[in-house]
Structures are given as C-alpha cells and as structure tokens.
C-alpha cells in the first residue's frame, strides 16, 4: 500500500458516499445514469470473484464488500425505490451500454494476463470500468445543469483513477517485478475520458458558476 493508492481508494469511497448522500438526502436520482451504476456493479462483481478465495488484508476485504454492497444498493434503489425511481431521467439515459459490455468482454477474451476464468473476468472488469462513466457523462451533457452533489460525485470518481496511475508509477519504480500493463493503459484511458469534465468542473469552480457541460 502507498499513499497514492490509499488516497485513490479514499476518493473512490468518497464518490460513493457523495452519491449515496445525494440519493438519500434529496430522495432523488436526477442527473444520475442508472446505466453507469449498473456497469459499476458489474465491474465490482466481475473483479472481486476472489473475495472469498484470496485473502489479501482486512482493509482489502472490507473495501471490496463496501464497493459491492453500495453499487448494488444504488442500482436497486434507482430501480425499485418508489420515491427515488420517479426522478430517474429515463428519457435522457439512453446510452447503449450493452455495446460497452460486449466490447469489454470481447477485449478481455483477447487481451488478458492468463486465459483463465478469473483472469478474463478481471480484465473484463478493468476494461468495463474504463468506459462505464460514458453513459453518465452523456447524461450530464444532455441534462444541462448539474447539481453540486452529482458534480462532486463525478469529480471524485475521475480523480480516484488518476491517483491509481500515480500509484502504478510509484510501484513501477519501487518494486522489482511490478507490471500491470492492462490496468495502467486502461486507467489512462479511463482518466482521459474525464478530461473535458475536469476542465468544465475547474472553470465552474474558478468562476464560482454552476457546472454546465456543453451539449
């Protein structure tokens, strides 16, 4: 564990807590893409198959459980909770995310560390996580004004993988046989997808204006 990775994990956790706060405090999921939330739930379920077989540390196990439970709870809440689901922007959340699923799985079959069930699902979760934010970014562009909590949610979600890139650079220089090309390249793509969001988020923060993504 290093400070970059810990900071990244805390930002990831913060993004989930901000999203839970928004949904439970405002009893609304307006501006949130259900498709992105479904993809994230799949990312965690596909990545943490080793939850009960490989024990890494208490921290690792607890965080995996938190991510799995929170992501499935958010999907369940947006689909089933009578009050929350009324505010879901169904007509705006139209990104065909099944393509992202199919493409990520196809790529995982071709590019993986070992052609085993667990490694293919791990690579699938890495590729899927890189593109999972797309339905959310498209929804933000369509829904014009972005409320503060939603903006903070996306910001922390983008920042977490940027810190993971610093973590991989650090590990590359400090550990002998460290090589995670699949995660590194995918993480770079993932963070790059947030570039324009980060730019408009910074502008709105600097000018103290409402965050607005150009359509």
């Amino acid at each position: 564990m290093n400070i970059f990775r810990f900071a990244g994990d805390m930002m990831h956790l913060t993004s989930i807590l901000v999203l839970l706060l928004k949904i439970y405090a405002t009893k609304s999921c307006s501006g949130i893409s259900l498709k992105t939330q479904e993809l994230y739930a799949l990312v965690f379920l596909a990545r943490y198959l080793d939850l009960f077989t490989d024990f890494i540390s208490v921290y690792n196990t607890i965080m995996k459980l938190v991510f799995i439970v929170s992501s499935t709870a958010i999907v369940w809440c947006m689909k089933r909770d009578r009050v929350v689901r009324r505010s879901y922007d169904k007509q705006l959340d139209t990104f065909r995310h099944y393509f992202l699923l199919a493409a990520s799985f196809a790529l995982a079959l071709l590019v993986n560390e070992k052609f085993t069930f667990q490694e293919i699902f791990w690579a699938f979760s890495i590729y899927l996580e890189a593109v999972a934010i797309l339905p959310q970014l498209v929804l933000l562009q369509r829904s014009g004004n972005v409320d503060n909590l939603t903006g903070q949610y996306v910001f922390f979600l983008g920042a977490y993988r940027a810190f993971y890139i610093l973590n991989w650079i650090y590990r590359y220089f400090t550990e002998t046989h460290f090589s995670r090309w699949i995660a590194c390249i995918s993480g770079l793509v993932q963070t790059a997808l947030y570039a324009d969001f980060f730019y408009y988020y910074y502008i709105s923060w600097k000018n103290n204006t409402k965050l607005k993504l150009p359509a």
Binding site: D50, I56, N60, R180
Partner: peptide, 10 residues
C-alpha cells in the same frame, strides 16, 4: 509469483 498475488489492488 502468481499473478493473483499482484491482484492486491481494489
């Protein structure tokens, strides 16, 4: 080391 050991990240 097996690749699984490298899966120490979330």
């Amino acid at each position: 080391s097996s690749t699984n050991e490298l899966k120490d990240e979330l």
